[in-house]
Each structure stands twice: as structure tokens, then as C-alpha cells.
Nucleic acid binder design. Sequence first.
DNA 1: GCAAAGCTGGAGAGCGCTCTCGCGACCGGG
DNA 2: CCCGGTCGCGAGAGCGCTCTCCAGCTTTGC
Lengths: 336, 336
Amino acid sequence: MSTGRARPTLEKVALRAGVSRATVSRVVNGSTTVAPEIRDSVLRAVQELGYVPNHAARSLVTQRTNSMALVLPEPSTRVFSDDQFFPGIIRGVSQELEVAEKQLVLMMASSAASHDRIEQYAMAGHVDGVMVASVHGADPLPATLTRMGVPVVCNGRPLGHSTVPYVDVDSVGGAAAAVGHLVNAGRQRIATIAGPQDMVAGIDRLAGYRTELRGSARRSIVAVGDFTRESGAVAMRQLLEDDPQLDAVFVASDLMAHGALGALREAGRRVPDDVAVIGFDDIELARYTEPPLTTVRQPIVDLGRELARQLLRLAGGEDIEPFVVLPTEMVVRESA
Amino acid sequence: MSTGRARPTLEKVALRAGVSRATVSRVVNGSTTVAPEIRDSVLRAVQELGYVPNHAARSLVTQRTNSMALVLPEPSTRVFSDDQFFPGIIRGVSQELEVAEKQLVLMMASSAASHDRIEQYAMAGHVDGVMVASVHGADPLPATLTRMGVPVVCNGRPLGHSTVPYVDVDSVGGAAAAVGHLVNAGRQRIATIAGPQDMVAGIDRLAGYRTELRGSARRSIVAVGDFTRESGAVAMRQLLEDDPQLDAVFVASDLMAHGALGALREAGRRVPDDVAVIGFDDIELARYTEPPLTTVRQPIVDLGRELARQLLRLAGGEDIEPFVVLPTEMVVRESA
DNA sequence: GCAAAGCTGGAGAGCGCTCTCGCGACCGGG
DNA sequence: CCCGGTCGCGAGAGCGCTCTCCAGCTTTGC
């Protein structure tokens, strides 16, 4: 019903080429032990009939599906400045999978209910491996799948003592670099607007801030947001109230930094003259804020690529490093 | 190698429950013709063994895969303000597929080479249907797949005389509404920065502008951009040179509108006092431009949902309308 | 009370492919 | 000239599942 003309099978091709199924299979899969003229006639038959191997049949016997799943958090959790993150990861992953001739199956982890769905799915032998881009740190899914023998790689260091391999960006280093930049610029009272402390990104960026500040003998001034623009504005007002003398703030996300910029403007502070601001993420908006935002760029596409690369190796039976950390990079614009 | 413990098969479950394979299959697939106590004992065996049906085997016999492909243009073609579009479509599609318990296979159509790959893939019986979100209007892929019996639905009216069903937003109406708004505000010289005229979105938005202007007896002033910010700035400068008296401009994308806003500022024109500006898309940035941008919102997530819904019906053997057009909505902010 | 008509569950074929096994043809060495 | 080895190909099993039969049993009608 849904399929038009019946798709030709190996059998049909074999018949037409006057050889056995096995030989056609050999040709299709690129075996070398086939005489050139026979191979040519098989290829001709394939061409003429428009033969395309049936994937289900093939993976039934090979036990491989040639596809990998990418589990993404449903972005209804507005957290994370997904706008770039979401497509960036996908792009990187799909680039890498394409060269490996693997397919990408996307799974949105919306509810807890979809959790089971994903687990079932991965275990149905539907995919050869799973990439989990979970923002909620302590997700049992990766560990569960690993236990069931499904190759898994996480994006972002998992919270808790998980042994699942992961790929992450150097948040700590990036935050430290940002704070270092402020210190070098002679800023004396450097505050931070941290992200949620139940998310790795939130934790690590705060850690980087703390470490670097400690090294420079300044005291830390911390407010916590939830990665949204609004929370950034609120936190900034809070900080200004707590310490009206502050002359710099490192904000754990560009979105929050954008909110903070607004709050600073309302409070009559000039950026960067009165208060220097550095964000994190380097979202597109950062180039167009007033003033343009100095920030820390994470290599999101590379992150996706590395994620896929690691998974491919793992699924290929290789041993891989327990984690890979990609460098972040400061992008100096005008806000600091 | 990649799988840990061997996955139990139907056979194993049957053995444990003391019934035949057929009965287990019946239970698993929810047949009603199974005695309650037998069903319970089967379910218990399933539970105990952690049985999950093998997808490949199932789809080998049923000829269905329970997954749908979404073909997206590789965003390296920076065209389109993908930032929202890309994830929006995905979100809508996956929401709808989730309730239908179908999986989403994502395919990036990067090069012409990947064209073949996609075609092969869809025809390998790997998916039950394909959604094509093509920006390049005259893409042969949808027609080819349809001819091969693969259910296809397009996002965006295909260029050329294609009979492939599609889902689109009302670009013409949206553009007309925008221009109407400018006319009602008493603007006399209303220019437009159009999108590329080889893309449906570019064509339709210009058509809407033209139609509405004609109705109001004003003359049209057209510059053409390519949907990028830079092209918007260039086009705006061009327009100002052509007609220094213009007092309004309808820009076919928010990104171009952003560029235009910059060009207007450079030229010393106040927005909206001297020149009113209306964009199209309602990307996130639109809320944060200076001044906030009046624009036309397209229901992107709904577009994705409708795309999936139509495809599900088509793949289910139903007849569907040749096209569905979703309404756009003006969002009035401060730029007009 | 007996045949006809349900129901439930089992046996078995087969979906399209891969891969092991073994057979014949061909080669070179003794 | 014969024999072991190699190489190219075909035969056939079977991956895990669904689904069509059909057998055995109960229920029902007259």
C-alpha cells in the first residue's frame, strides 16, 4: 500500500545476472573474490533493476543497524541557550556520522515517560549506539544503557560517579580565562552570576571563577541565575545592591549576560567603563548587544563531532578514553 | 562485541512461559484472543527476561519500520534564519511523531552527493515516509521518492509543477498584512527588501508586498537581498540612495531587517519616526533590536507538527489535501 | 444429544539477507 | 602425470519475527 512497485530482492538480481544470491551479496558488499566479468554483470543487473538492499533483512543477520541515536533534552526546559547548542550539536554529529555512513536517529527526551521509550528503543537493537546530550546532570539513562551493553557516550560530564565516557568543553578553563582577563584589566571587585548548581555547566563555570579569583586574592561575589535572560537581570540588580562598588562581572551564560547588561543600563552604569561584563557561550546575539559582548566561545560543532567520533570508536569495539575535554576560547569584544 | 548479554528472543520467552512463539507474539502485539491467565504468564516471562522485540526482524516481515525521515538542508547554506527554523521544525515533528510512536531519522542534505544517499536510504525501506524541508525550491528529490512509492510531504510549496503534498505558512498573507499595517499608518513610500527569488519564501513575500501595494495605489520600490544580515544592510543603503524620501520598508526576513536597521542608523534616520521597518520571521533577536522589531511571526513548531501529521496520514494510506497553509501573525513592536 | 459454529493456541512458512561450508576448476611442484 | 593447495562460486542454514492456516476444545441451537 505505501510502497509502489515491489522492490527487487537479491534473488531477482541473482536470477537476472545468472548467478547465485551469495555472489550478488558479495558484489554488493564489495568482496574482492569475484571475477571481474561476473561482478560487472551483477552490477549491471543491480543497475537495471534499481536494486537497493533491504536494511531490515541485513541488520537482522548482521546485528548492526548502521544508525546511532542522539538523545536531546526537550528544549521546553528553556535552560541552556539552546538556540545555538541544539543545532550545533546536531550538525557536528551528523557531519561525522555521514562520513561513517551511519544514520542519525533523533530522540527528544521530553518527559520521564519518554525515558522508557528511549531505553526500549535503544535496546530493541534499533541503533548501534547512543549519544546522550543531557543537561540534567544525574540522568540514569546512560548508565542503564551501558549496563545493557549499548555503547553510550555523554555530552557533558555526568554528575555522580558515572563511568560512562563523555565529551565536554573546558568550562572551568574558560571561566578562569575570563576572570583572568578581568584581573589583568585591573578590575578589583569581580562578581559572578552563576548558573544553576544542579547542572554541570553551572557548577564548572562557577568553579573556574572561584579558582581564578582565589589566585588573585580578590573576594568572590556570587549571585545565582538559571541561565535565562530574566534571571540574569534579577541577579545583576541583586549584585549591585550587595556591592555597589563592583567593577566587573563574569556571567555564566550570554543570555544571562544580556539580561545583566540591561540591568546595568537601568542602573546607570556604563559598560565597560564602570562595570566590565564577560559572558559565556558566544551565542549569535553576543555580537549585537550594546556594547558587543566579550565572552567565552565553546566549540559546539566540534563537540558534536567528537561525540560521534568517540561513539563510533566505542561501537567499533575500540577502547576509548574515559573523557575528552575540548578547549574553550575567549572572544574579546567591547564589554570587557 | 558491542552487545553485552544476549538479548532474549521470542522463543526464549515462549519456552519460559510454556507457550508457543505465536502466542507470545500475540500478547506482545496486544491481540485480544489470548486467555487472561496465559497472557499474564507471558507478560511475566517478558518482564523477567527483559524481553524487547527485535526491530529488524519485525520490520522484515511487516514491511514497516515505524520511523520517518526528516530531510533538512545543511545549514552551511546560511540562508534562512535557521536559528529558529531548524530546531522549531524538529521540535514540532518530533512532538507529533512521539504520540504516534514513530521514530525520527534526521538527514542532512549537504551536498548533491548526499542526495543519492538519501534516496537510497529512503528506498531501502528504512523509513515509512519522508518529510523534506527543502529551501532550494526545485528539488527533484520529493518527486523521485514519490514515484518510487515512498510517502513524501514537503515543507514549503515546491517550485515547479510538483504534485507532492506540502505544508506551508501564509507568506503572501503575512507580507500583505505587514504592508497593510504600513499603509494604515499613513506611510507613503513603502519599499521592500525582498529575499532571493529562487526561493519560495523570497517569492511569496515579495508577491504579498506587491499585491497589497497595488491595492493602495502606491508604487513599489524593490531591492533584493539573500536573507543575510549583510545583504539587508546593503539593500537598505541602496534603497535610501534610490529614494531618499522613503518612509517605510518591509523586509523579507528579520535578519535582513536587522542589517537594515543598522544601515538606517548610519544614515541618520530614526526608526520608526523617519522610516518604519517591518521584518519577517519573528526570530528571537527581533525583540532585542533597537528599536524592537515589528515583524510577522510564522508558526514554525506548528509547521513541523502539521508536516508530521500529514505524513502519518499519507503513510497510513489516507488521502490528504494537496497542501495545507498555516496562518501567519503580525507582531507589532516599536519599529512600525 | 448431536452437529455446527465459535475460540484459543500451535505448527510452520517465509520476510531478504549474510556467511559458513564445500565443491569443482585451476595452478604449480615433485 | 599426479596430487595438494588455492581460488571462485553455489548451496543452504538461519537471523527473530509475524501471520496464515489448522487442530482441538468449548459453546450453542435445535
